[in-house]
């Protein structure tokens, strides 16, 4: 049997899967951030015209997924699968956001790494010949996440410097065979890595080992190094998580330079926006990729990137029972559109 596997964790798609379109919709705080001009839609009202945070998140999902399909010049009926997820219990943000679409649906949970998971599985579905078009996305909402994971929003608490700020928004891509756009060529799927971090206010530290593990596995499987990429971008490790990844890999003899960055660092202005360690949440990597990196790839300013959304796989129950926080990362190699097809 012919295999597409190269190494222990990486697969190479037989034909690159094209990202036909990417759409990003964000909330007010993200719209004040440095990436403002790259987002398709910025919403001033954190409720997005709804009455609850959960409904607001679903509204982000619905609006942004429709936008992605529209930008790809396709119809919702053309989508063979919808793959998406969020942070809420039972993926309810995604379910209620996509229920009107009436398309085959896989709900995913990879915590904040969901965008990587959705794009990986979507690309595999297409390369496997099971779908022509796949709509993949992820969402999060600061308020619904605070309410579920931390404390009521009205509670007067202090955030420690290592805490991160959940990004409000939705990022979605339309994946397809053929056509013009950045292409997914390889997928490295991460393992659950648990280094015993229990501090829920230091997610970057909980996830950094998983990201380092994935980068290392990817380099090993493909024989490449940092120099082969214009950008290596993790999901939501933030400032301190990024430093930890660099340090962990240095110990393994693998040097990352300034080409390695993190969506959680880029999405907010740490000093002006008081976001402490940086952005987090499913939407952090999703909107940063769909907004900023998609355009960089289209303009060929980035020719090849390793995109690795990261997730902290914890629940409130596991945290209260004293479990440590396992991390995961999902890596994709994404290259700029091949020149000749334009």
């Amino acid at each position: 049997m012919e295999t597409k596997r190269i190494g222990k964790q990486t697969v190479r798609l037989r034909e690159p899967v094209v990202i036909r379109a990417a759409a990003s919709t964000v909330g007010p705080k993200e719209a004040e951030g440095p990436l403002r001009k790259y987002f398709d839609e910025t919403v001033e009202d954190i409720f997005y015209g709804e009455t609850t945070w959960e409904k607001a998140e679903s509204h982000f999902v619905e609006k942004n997924m429709r936008l992605a399909v529209q930008k790809a010049d396709l119809l919702m009926e053309d989508m063979d699968y919808i793959l998406c997820g969020d942070l809420l219990n039972q993926c309810s943000g995604s379910i209620f956001g996509t229920r009107q679409f009436k398309r085959p649906f896989f709900g995913l949970f990879g915590a904040c790494s969901t965008m990587g998971e959705a794009m990986s599985l979507g690309a595999m579905l297409i390369d496997g010949g099971f779908a022509k078009y796949v709509l993949a996305g992820a969402s999060s909402h600061f308020c619904s996440a605070e309410k579920q994971f931390r404390a009521p929003l009205g509670l007067g608490t202090q955030r420690p410097p290592t805490a991160s700020w959940t990004v409000t928004g939705d990022g979605a891509v339309v994946l397809g065979k053929g056509g013009y756009g950045p292409v997914i060529t390889e997928i490295t799927t991460g393992k659950t890595v648990d280094m015993g971090i229990t501090d829920a206010n230091n997610m970057g530290a909980a996830m950094a080992p998983a990201a380092a593990d994935l980068i290392l596995a990817h380099f090993l499987d493909t024989g490449r190094s940092c120099a082969d990429y214009d950008a290596i971008v993790s999901g939501d490790l933030g400032w301190y998580g990024r430093d930890l990844v660099v340090e962990l890999l240095e110990k393994e003899g693998c040097h990352l330079d300034e080409r390695y960055t993190d969506c959680g660092i880029q999405i907010f202005n740490q000093r002006l926006q008081d976001t402490h360690a940086g952005g987090s949440g499913c939407a952090c990597s999703a909107v940063t990729f769909c907004g900023y990196y998609y355009k960089m790839l289209m303009e060929r300013k980035i020719r090849r990137m390793l995109f690795l959304p990261t997730g902290a796989l914890m629940s409130q129950t596991s945290a209260q029972q004293g479990e440590s926080i396992p991390g995961i990362a999902h890596g994709l190699v994404i290259e700029c559109p091949p020149k000749e097809e334009k």
């Binding site: 202090q158 420690p160 410097p161 290592t162 280094m195 015993g196 971090i197 230091n202 530290a205 080992p209 301190y240 430093d243 930890l244 340090e247 962990l248």
Partner: peptide, 18 residues
């Protein structure tokens, strides 16, 4: 052992509350 080492690494990298 490496978990302990990592914990130390996290402590040095993460800023303390002012």
């Amino acid at each position: 052992e490496s978990k302990k080492q990592y914990e130390k690494m996290v402590e040095t990298v993460s800023p303390n509350s002012p």
